[in-house]
Simulated scan of single mutants.
Amino acid sequence: MQTHSAIPTSRLQQGPAPIRPSHRNDDAPASLASLGTVVSIRRGGAVYREGDPALNWFRVVSGTACTCKLLPDGRRQIFTFLHTGDFFGFEALGEHGFGAEALTDLVVIRYSRRHTEALAQTDGAVGHRFREIACRSLTAAYERLLTLGRRTATERVAGFLLELARMAPDGKTISLPMSRCDIGDYLGLTLETVSRTFAALKHDSLIEMTGAHCVSLLDRPALELMTEGDEPAVRHRIE
Rank of each mutant, 00 (worst) to 15 (best):
R75P: 00
G45S: 05
G85H: 01
G36I: 09
G44Y: 07
N56I: 06
S31R: 13
S62R: 13
R59K: 04
V61D: 09
K69F: 07
L82H: 07
C68F: 14
G45K: 02
H83N: 04
L32Y: 11
Y48F: 15
K69D: 03
P53D: 14
A30Y: 05
P72Y: 07
A30T: 09
T80P: 02
G44C: 12
E50W: 02
R59Y: 01
A65D: 02
P72I: 09
C66Y: 01
L35I: 06
T67P: 00
G51H: 11
S34F: 02
P53C: 10
E50L: 11
L82R: 02
P53G: 08
A33Q: 15
V39S: 06
N56C: 14
R43T: 13
A54E: 08
G74C: 09
R49K: 13
D52A: 08
R75W: 02
Y48I: 03
S40H: 15
G85Q: 03
F90C: 08
W57R: 04
G74N: 09
G63D: 00
F81D: 02
N56Q: 14
S62P: 00
A33V: 15
V60K: 01
A65H: 02
C66V: 04
L32N: 13
G89V: 05
S62H: 07
R49D: 04
G89R: 07
D52K: 11
T64D: 00
C68G: 03
V47I: 14
F88T: 05
E50G: 12
F81G: 01
R43H: 08
D86T: 04
A30P: 00
L55K: 13
R43E: 14
V38W: 00
V38M: 08
T84P: 03
T84A: 12
W57Y: 10
R43Q: 15
A46Q: 13
V47H: 03
R49G: 10
V38H: 03
S31L: 08
K69I: 12
A33I: 12
P53F: 06
A30D: 12
R59A: 10
D86N: 15
G51S: 12
V38C: 07
G44S: 11
R42Q: 14
F90Y: 12
L71H: 15
F58P: 02
R59P: 00
N56R: 13
T67H: 02
V61P: 03
G85R: 02
S40N: 15
V47L: 06
G36Y: 11
T37L: 07
I78D: 08
L71I: 08
L82C: 06
V38E: 14
R75N: 13
A30S: 09
L70S: 10
N56V: 12
R42W: 04
S62D: 11
V61A: 03
G51A: 11
N56K: 09
A46V: 11
G89N: 07
L70D: 08
D86W: 01
